[in-house]
Design a protein around this nucleic acid. Structure first.
Ligand SMILES: NC(=O)c1ccc[n+]([C@@H]2O[C@H](COP(=O)([O-])OP(=O)(O)OC[C@H]3O[C@@H](n4cnc5c(N)ncnc54)[C@H](O)[C@@H]3O)[C@@H](O)[C@H]2O)c1
Ligand SMILES: NC(=O)c1ccc[n+]([C@@H]2O[C@H](COP(=O)([O-])OP(=O)(O)OC[C@H]3O[C@@H](n4cnc5c(N)ncnc54)[C@H](O)[C@@H]3O)[C@@H](O)[C@H]2O)c1
Lengths: 256, 256
DNA sequence: CGCGATTTGTGCGTGTCTTCACAAGCGCTT
DNA sequence: AAGCGCTTGTGAAGACACGCACAAATCGCG
């Protein structure tokens, strides 16, 4: 690519950031590759073929190769990829060479589980602070961290240079929490509350909603059932009237 | 799935409305629309424009209209959509007119949180059984359900016509659990364990991986930092050598 | 009864993502 | 040193998704 800047092009608006700008779809898969690679490394493998790694990560091998090619190609034809090298590469690109600090807001049911989750630490993150609004919870110690009051959120986030905020409060409180995170300089948020957050440009929000996942599965379940029910039937009005809705599907998912 | 089929088993493919086959991207957004609609309904709104609903769901209005048009167009030009009607429509398409039963496997840290989560019930699902392999946990009662031993999984799944299996065990146990779910006739799985599951055709798996989400955020964080750090300079060849990796990125995450 | 304000439904251009298929590169063997 | 099998990296084509922009439909009002 543009490794070497050829002479004769002095001050071009060179768009060569330290990071290649990867397609979003690729970014979303890199963590999966990384996990698979760590498994391989633990099992003593030193190299791996795209075929193997693709299988381990659950994707198509051509896709995997294209993804990796975006970060600069470290494979050897006829051999495969060097596992350790690739791990370094991906961790670098994902910005994991530096351990990122996480603030967790809302130490309830879910928050407790998250606070006690070791997958944070083992995959590049460190929970640096816990917050809640409930006076009963404030002061509680979890995993060596004391729960602080959410009023301190902005200040602490700034002081501790929090990189990522995780919201595990009820939906009604989520926007307010997000605002405080943003005020504290946090530019990445992971939201577990089922609501849409509004944030300024430059702030990234990702959302995890359990019910959404289940409902997507439900759709496919429904679909499979309606297909097996009428193997080759034509159409039938795909406009069930409101009144007859609940009545409609007979026996779905007859198992095997 | 249909609860117990009564002896007579009236199983005829009556006028089952064929499901439109929606684009996956659309299916993934419908739950979001549904949530927003329920909010509107609670607030007494009877109709809603695509613009409004789109904003509430965090998407582009044209996209929303196109999505809804796939399920047969229930809007009125010049007016908008009937909230109640649209809720029925979407719930029907998602297969939520029938409450789906869920089995939760692995009642540890995360499992406990999930078992106690009321978002299941309020959004169309019912946890019908809990499983674990730890003798200490088996027998424990959570939310009115007794934790059963995972050896009973296949049998119970069949008996209770479980529609969806949720895996919250350590990764090492996940594949085994998935196999048992499949053996019990479950064709939809939601996997919280960080690993790839292998299942037969016809079985859907969705995965939720917290660390993946964080790592994606980390990438963008890294990216933002490298951009603001070098506004217009060509920089570090994007091929950091193995040895120099950890050294590379200067000062990121400077907070504000 | 007709007109203008409003909002849906969609045709179409654009960009992104996926997948196939294969040439080029690499190491091992002969 | 040449040949051979294996694996990467990528061009090209197709599939999919997105969002603009506008015609068509509907309502309310004068
Ligand atoms: N429990 C689950 O398994 C689960 C699963 C998926 C999503 N969620 C979502 O995650 C969120 C939390 O769920 P939960 O079950 O832990 O609820 P919870 O009620 O057990 O916990 C919420 C916590 O947030 C705290 N809180 C409330 N307002 C706050 C504020 N303004 N600032 C800081 N803290 C505040 C409460 O004191 C409480 O400790 C909810 O939005 C829920 O929908 C939960
Ligand atoms: N805790 C979190 O916040 C969190 C977040 C994201 C993902 N996860 C993932 O979810 C999974 C569970 O996490 P956790 O923190 O609850 O772990 P945990 O160790 O607290 O709980 C795991 C539970 O699974 C049970 N189990 C083990 N083998 C089993 C088997 N073969 N059959 C049935 N049950 C079995 C254990 O007895 C235990 O009760 C892990 O894969 C973890 O990576 C956890």
């Amino acid at each position: 690519m543009s490794q070497h800047r050829p002479p004769g092009a002095p001050e071009r608006p060179v768009a060569v950031p330290a990071l290649p700008d990867l397609p979003e779809a690729t970014v979303a898969r890199l963590p999966e590759y990384l996990r698979a690679l760590h498994n391989l490394a633990e099992n003593g493998h030193e190299t791996v073929s795209s075929e193997w790694l693709a299988t381990a990560a659950g994707v198509n091998s051509a896709k995997l190769r294209k993804d990796l090619s975006h970060l600069g190609s470290y494979g050897t034809r006829g051999v495969g990829y060097d596992v350790a090298l690739l791990i370094d590469q991906i961790e670098y690109v994902l910005g994991l060479t530096q351990r990122r600090t996480v603030a967790l807001v809302g130490v309830g049911n879910l928050g407790h589980a998250l606070a006690g989750y070791d997958g944070f630490a083992t995959r590049g993150f460190r929970i640096a602070a816990l917050f809640d609004s409930d006076p009963v919870r404030v002061g509680e110690e979890i995993n060596g961290l004391v729960v602080r009051h959410v009023d301190e959120l902005s200040r602490v986030a700034t002081e501790e240079s929090i990189a990522i905020g995780v919201i595990a409060t009820p939906a009604a409180a989520a926007q307010r929490v997000a605002d405080r995170l943003v005020a504290g300089g946090v530019t990445s948020i992971l939201n577990f509350a089922p609501c849409v957050l509004t944030v300024p440009d430059g702030v990234d929000v990702r959302k995890v909603d359990l019910a959404v996942e289940l409902q997507i599965l439900s759709f496919h379940e429904h679909r499979k059932a309606s297909l097996t029910a009428l193997p080759a039937a034509g159409e039938a009005p795909l406009t069930p009237l409101p009144g007859s809705l609940a009545a409609t599907d007979p026996q779905e998912a007859i198992g095997t």
